[in-house]
Amino acid sequence: MDEIVLDIENLEKTYPGGVHAVKGISFDVKKGESIAIIGSSGSGKSTVLRCINRLIEPTKGNIKLNNQIINNPLADVNEIRSKIGMVFQSFELFSHLKVLDNITLGLRHVRGMSKDEAEESALEVLARVDMLDRIDAFPGNLSGGQKQRVAIARALAMHPEVILFDEPTSALDPELIGSVLQTIRSLADEGMTMVIVTHEINFARDVADRIIYMDKGLIAEQGPSSIIENPNSDRLKEFLSSMDEENDN
């Protein structure tokens, strides 16, 4: 459990417009650990996540995956990305492909599997997210929750070292959130390494081994999930109470 999968050191990102979104943060993710990053909008959570698989190039700092620097221009960015799964807020399923093909695409064209191998593998992960009955459906005909589960399956199929969740439930209706959270929770139980950016405080508390609270591009507070009950900093207290209000409304 102590093996460090992901190590982020002094990460900084300044956008071309001059916005200093991330101002130097460091944390690490151990194998099998699930980490939730919470924080108000614009605090730099998504930027951190996207820097990790280099969808955004960091301005400064190092990111190491299994002790290898990955934001080095010489590193093979495609290989790195194939080791880091990503689940998006708006699902981003490939709408011209059926559910099964959505999952086999990466296996066949990145991993170089044959069609049969890939399908076998895909069926396995689809079973894990409970989507076996819709393998021939097009994404357009799925509900939001189903889409997100397929997206999770797509990330899982690549057997990544770590999966990044970018607000996986934000685009979902409240009644659909449950199934997705259930799926993520079961992944955590299976020992998947995960970094989850979320607004679901309760879910973060349930699933995450560790919670990082970000504010204005910096880590304001981090610790075990118990910090939700007993926040140390005023900023986190304020944030939690505002979230409570929102939920009450």
Partner: peptide, 30 residues
């Protein structure tokens, strides 16, 4: 085509051209 499709393609490890060929163009041509 939403930019997220490109991100999704890149995030599973496809190259820019690969994503273009397998994901963006099939949708765009339709």
């Amino acid at each position: 085509i939403p930019s997220g499709q490109m991100e999704a393609g890149r995030s599973i490890g496809l190259t820019y051209m690969g994503t273009m060929r397998l994901i963006i163009l099939p949708q765009a041509i339709r």
